[in-house]
């Protein structure tokens, strides 16, 4: 067949124009997405760099296993006495204590409301409650911080006094409970999605065998949804660990090494804030320690998020 033979069906088109258009669109989109990616890489790089600088001054083991946190280094070289100690353990335990209180409080409430919403609530109730819960997630955390410092903490302290408990005005309990309220919508909304993703055919199978609604939820729906629920709890934990404003306002600055929820504790995020606010000498170990803490926090939440998302994704695939 020769080239210039005329065809009745024309499929040749004008390649040049279409190809250029496609290319422009593709590169433009690539550019847009690389802004976010490059920024992330930049942040990570500076974080890593400063963290290395910090570990030139303070040993890695002292940081990771040291039991005392008091980052006051000498401001002038001739000053004596305060050389600073950078043991992160009290910060880590403080963070874990508060996160644990938050999860302990939020897990049952979040899960039960998810089960209620997904399985029991009528359409009308669902239409009201779900947006309300999601509204809760949209409240700025500084407002929760307020709430913790001005209402929860005094309330706990007053209540404690009445029953003979000493609860300091800044306590892990106040911060943990408020943070719990903050993450309830996160847990309930994610778990609600997971429960809804359990196929209707499994419910039908169970009802068809004569199971009651409670039996169906307990024996079929929850077991099928457990991996996804675990994923949503991990995401919530990672959120709690990274939360700052509430703890700044409610938990205090005292780096106490304690498991007592009635005492003031401090967290990794709070210390980063206090280290970097105000006038700081950039090269000092004190300032650099903030980067080390940030790096540490980043690694932990990154791991938690990756594991959680893996679990949730895997779970979703299972039923597609």
């Amino acid at each position: 067949m020769s080239q210039d033979e005329t065809h009745t069906i024309d499929i040749i088109g004008k390649p040049s124009r279409h190809k250029i258009q496609e290319k422009i669109v593709t590169y433009f989109m690539l550019l847009c997405s690389s802004v976010a990616i490059l920024t992330t890489i930049g942040i990570l790089a500076s974080l890593t760099f400063e963290t290395f600088a910090f570990f030139q001054k303070v040993s890695f083991l002292d940081f990771l296993f040291g039991l005392e946190w008091s980052p006051q280094t000498a401001l002038r070289s001739d000053q004596v006495g305060s050389s600073g100690s950078f043991g992160a353990v009290p910060l880590i335990t403080g963070t874990l204590l508060i996160s644990a209180i938050a999860m302990f409080f939020a897990t049952p409430l979040g899960l039960l409301s998810a089960i209620y919403l997904a399985e029991y609530a009528s359409k009308n109730v669902r239409a009201v409650v779900k947006p309300l819960l999601e509204l809760l997630a949209g409240i700025p955390t500084v407002v929760y911080g307020f709430f913790a410092a001005l209402i929860i903490a005094p309330f706990l302290r007053g209540g404690g006094e009445n029953v003979g408990l000493v609860i300091s005005s800044e306590s892990a309990l106040a911060a943990g409970l408020t943070m719990g309220v903050m993450i309830i919508p996160l847990i309930s909304s994610l778990s609600d999605d997971v429960i809804n993703a359990v196929p209707q055919s499994l419910r039908d199978a169970s009802y068809g065998l004569g199971a009651t609604q409670t039996e169906t939820i307990k024996e079929v729906i929850l077991p099928a949804a457990i991996p996804g629920i675990a994923g949503s709890l991990l995401l919530a934990t990672s959120r709690a660990i990274g939360e700052t404003m509430i703890v700044v306002m409610a938990a205090g600055l005292a780096a106490n090494l304690t498991a007592n929820p009635f005492e003031a504790v401090t967290t990794v995020t709070v210390q980063i804030v206090t280290l970097l606010t105000g006038d700081q000498e950039f090269e000092s170990a004190k300032t650099l320690s903030a980067f080390a803490l940030g790096f540490f926090l980043f690694i932990i939440t990154l791991c938690l998020n990756i594991v959680a998302l893996k679990i949730v994704d895997h779970y979703k695939e299972q039923y597609d």
Partner: peptide
């Protein structure tokens, strides 16, 4: 209905074994 569904069982269009 629990007793009714025990006496009148059901098999669905798509196989739906529990996981």
């Amino acid at each position: 209905v629990v007793a009714l569904r025990q006496k009148v069982g059901m098999v669905f269009q798509k196989p739906n074994p529990f996981p």
